[in-house]
Design a binder for these strands. Sequence first.
DNA 1: AGTTTCATATGG
DNA 2: CTCGCCATATGAAACT
Length: 538
Amino acid sequence: MIAAIPASGGRGVLAPLDGTGPPVEVADLVAAIASREARDAPRWVWPSTAELYPRLLERGLRVERCYDMELAEAILLGVEGRWGEPRSLASAAARLHGEPVPPDPPPRSSIDAEATLFTVETPVPSLATLLAVYEHQRARCAAAPSPGRLNTLIAAESAGALVAAEMGRVGLPWRADVHRALLLDLLGEPSPMGGPPRKLIELADRINDAFGSTTRIHPDSPAEVLRAFERLGITLANTRAWELRRIDHPVVPILIEYKELARIWSAHGWSWLDQWVKDGRFRPEYIPGGVVSGRWATRGGGALQIPKVVRKAVVADPGWTLVVADAGQLEPRVLAAVSGDRRLASAAAAGDLYAALASEAFGGDRSRAKVALLGAMYGQTGGQAVPALAALRRFYPLAWDYVEQAARTGETGGLVHTWLGRTCPPASVTFIASGYEEGGSRSRARGRFTRNFVIQGTAAEWALVLLARLRAALVGTAAELVFFQHDEVVVHCPAGDAQLVIEAVHRAGDEARRLLFGETPVRFPLDVSVVECYADAK
DNA sequence: AGTTTCATATGG
DNA sequence: CTCGCCATATGAAACT
């Protein structure tokens, strides 16, 4: 373990943490890390991967392992019920010494556009500060209920941060020409000044004809659309596609087509392409642990919501291929593993968990089995799922109790945690974001949140470990990790390496299962496809 | 005029 | 009274 502390002007300090030598000041921190990495690839302890690692990558250096103090701090604060407090090394040090805690700096990308005048240089921490905070973190971790699991989580989160930086740099292969052809096909010619393309204008005309009113309505305006239907004697609660589909009127299919195309145009049209795709790659910024449950978030480009049709533009380089691996039915499998419900676990030993569930407890009705299980994990209490939920409760009492317990803990003001120990934020943090619900409804909403947190968060951990193991397995190959979306990973590799990558993915999934759950009958099967184009996966 | 919220879409 | 989780992004509508 070696601490790497960046200082100004590219300089820094390297300090072995195991007493194998004195700290050394270096003029070129990146070069110093490179030479040590080549020697024995230690685990690097540094303040922030997001801050430092891009500088290493820029100079062609990758490292094997790290300990990200900022991510560790965020996890530990959560465990201590202090979710949301500043997580930077500077703030951790201030807390440790009882000094005023500085707020975290705003995210880089939002400030680098403007306000460069005000850029606050990240203060250079002293070696003593880093060591003190690191030791304190180790002690807090050791004092946690399950130190081993928490250590695993911090290691996985740190490895994830390495992947995130690498993936953001390498980018997802993106054929702008294919994307443009797709847009032309769907939307027609773009208008020169960035206005709506031909087909949207035509559809808007046809919508107005179908409404037959004298004043022209704008289909993008829900209020105007509602009024137009009102004039026809049709009252709608909203203009959502599923609501529109329930009424029988010639304008409906045109309106739905308009909405679909308008969405593509505004969210993934020409301006998106110009803004986000450079040199044949789409490079979003990934944010490990950016979602409360531990899932990743992204900043910019909507990388985690790429519509299926637009995935046609994701094409492997010539002679290369995409290996797309998707963990099927991940969350119910996680529930089977964490709850210790042997009956559910034996269903989760099957390739199709819902089918196994159906034949055991739902008279072979797979879709009923599915809504029951999803309903239990999301806290559904009404609708058609009710009788199915009763069957679920009867047949799988331990799994049922697991999510019920999480819900009750949340409803009564408690905190829940994932399998590896990531802790949910307290209600005081989340309800601010989720609106003004009153009384009992608020506590039930809180229960649904904590109920789902334990499952979604543990699923995120499994996926994170898979990602980390896969990254390790691909070291020294040409293959590059290019995309990660909750339970799905995409590897871009020379066509001849596809078989090797497939095997590596399966091994990584297996290692993730064992690292989290040890010997469990629950399987976590991966659907793997080898495709030239992302849209052809599955 | 600039900022915040709402409505609706996308993804898991 | 109502009742399904986690997100991001856009444009319209509402607000300051």
